[in-house]
Design a protein around this nucleic acid. Sequence first.
DNA 1: CCTGGCATCATTTTT
DNA 2: TGATGCCAGG
Length: 687
Amino acid sequence: MDAAPKLNAAQMQAVTAPVGPLLVLAGAGTGKTRVVIARIAHLARRGNCPSRILAVTFTNKAAREMLGRANTLLQRKKDAPRPEISTIHSLCVRILRRHAARLGYPERFTIIDRGDQEGTARKVLKELKVPEATLRPADLLDRVSRWKSVGIRPDDAFANLSGDADESWELAAAGYRRYQQALRATGAVDFDDLLLVVDELFTTHEDARRQEASRFDHLLVDEYQDTSGIQERILAALARDHRSLCVVGDDDQSIYAWRGAQIAHILDFAHRWPGATVVRLEENYRSTPEIIKAANTLIAHNGRRHGKTLVSKAPSGVPPTIMQAQDEVDESQRVVSEVESLLREGATILAETAILVRTGEQTRVFEQELRRRDIAYELIGSRSFFDRREVKDVMAFLRLLVEPDDDLALSRIANVPPRGLSAHTIEKCRTAASLAGHSLWHELQAARAAGRLTAAAGTGIGMLERMVALRHGAAVAGAAETLRTLLDQADYRRHLDREYEEDLAEAEARWQCVEEVANALAHYEKAHGGGRDDEGFARLVRGFLDDLILEVTEAERHETDKEKGKGNKLRLMTLHAAKGLEFDCVWMVGMEEGILPHIRSLNDGLQAIDEERRLCYVGVTRARKRLSLSLCLTRMKWGKTKPCRPSRFLYELTGQAEKFQEQPAAPAAAPSPTKGKRPAKRVAKRR
DNA sequence: CCTGGCATCATTTTT
DNA sequence: TGATGCCAGG
């Protein structure tokens, strides 16, 4: 990683630039993280207390890594002040917890995760009687998120509908309003709200803004090209007074427009912050000249950019290769064979290999193949751990312990394991509760008292009551211990065993996940000093759940067997998840029109294709020594075999862009007279 | 109240 | 091809 032992001139310039607005345009592999950390150290050396420095990263993983490296570099004693390094979401949670009451939010709002968002969206659409074919929950959330990322409220959404918007946008606007009402009613906020509400706080309460801004004297922002409108406003509000704002990013790696990221922020930075210093890092220490050449040729096809050209400082290697497979199964077999032969030759180790895909669905065949050949791999970035039913159940149990009035959590586990409270009963009580204006928990107890429930349901509520009662004395027993008692009382282990009685290994694996949450809680408890009283315990658990939802706390994935040399695994991930990582050998698979660029961007016009190109660029620049691209001639889609065309990016990155035709010469509909493979046209001959 | 079987219909990326 | 939702029967 640190191919450059000393900072080069440009890096040095960035690190020591005068305090004030600073834009570091850092291409891929130019040592940008290093620069951020070195600048923190530089500021500290100049007499700034590290704790007055705030660095914002894009992901929690990046934050953890940066914090680790910063601590090493600062070489302080244990209790010495350390810089604050976190994602903007974690930062906002902390700000909100301090000011929630002033915004008319329930003092203890809960953050809902993607799954609950989708559940809420689904319900909203059902209430509005919108058929799923018109607007799916995920689509609604997508649009809501887009609105929120630029600060558009439900009421503004209607006003903002442009003339050419189809009716689905109107439905989405209506859905947005209902969705927001639903969240409000349960005191919940989603990921976007965290930012939206902080922005609102800063606009309406100048004193709060100043108070938060004054906690730091310096602000550094990593991956600045991916900031959304609302994020930009929050960051600006924090930096406005001291103007010590150092942003680092690469416009060519902006790949989150769909989430509201605006590339304009990095393009116009110098304009919006007058007097800003601009430093460009173009010396790449990561990849061979062959790989950099492909990357440069590719990205030159994009329109709006700062126009950097990377210069490789690494020794020459092999040119990128392109492999054409019959179908996706063939592709996976040949790619994995390549991995194996490289390993056999000793050309690389597993930990230095990665297979990158455009969509999560593509990972499937590769997983199968890797498992078949017994190659250790890790699926990165999938929120699979947190999506697991048992993990969400445990989180709901835990939430209930401190927040019995949390309707979402209660309805999740009210009948898990089954205790006579059917979905129907719960739904009925939920409606009654919202009519009466109190919580589901309250309603259940009231309904039982009024004799409106079956005996079985009554018993079930009694069981829940006993579980919730565990909160008293939890401070003494300890949080993790209390959770174990609770799970015991709920008989959750037996529940899992029964659920998967035909597959005991599965039941065991799922229980392991439960254990991991308990362990993570124990960890968190130790790190934060257990709660002293009921209130302290509640705060501890709430903080833990916040972190878990934001994935700040690492719940270590269950390690299968004792891996030889732990961490020595091939990484399998999406291109998005690969941002910020690097490997000796990278395979980019599925290089076909419709996958990369994705079909949906093909319909969305040039801007969308530019973003796909940046995505491709990100993939290419992950590779240090070897880059292998592959594509399929046909692909199985919904049980049907469909032909594929090579991605335009393959032509572009080999300098043959002119050979790509937007429309296939022969209409795809016209079947070729002779069945079988199409003429093996030589795609992208090298050089 | 719960379970299993059948019909339907789908197209991305994630803090 | 596979996930998910709905309905009928225990």
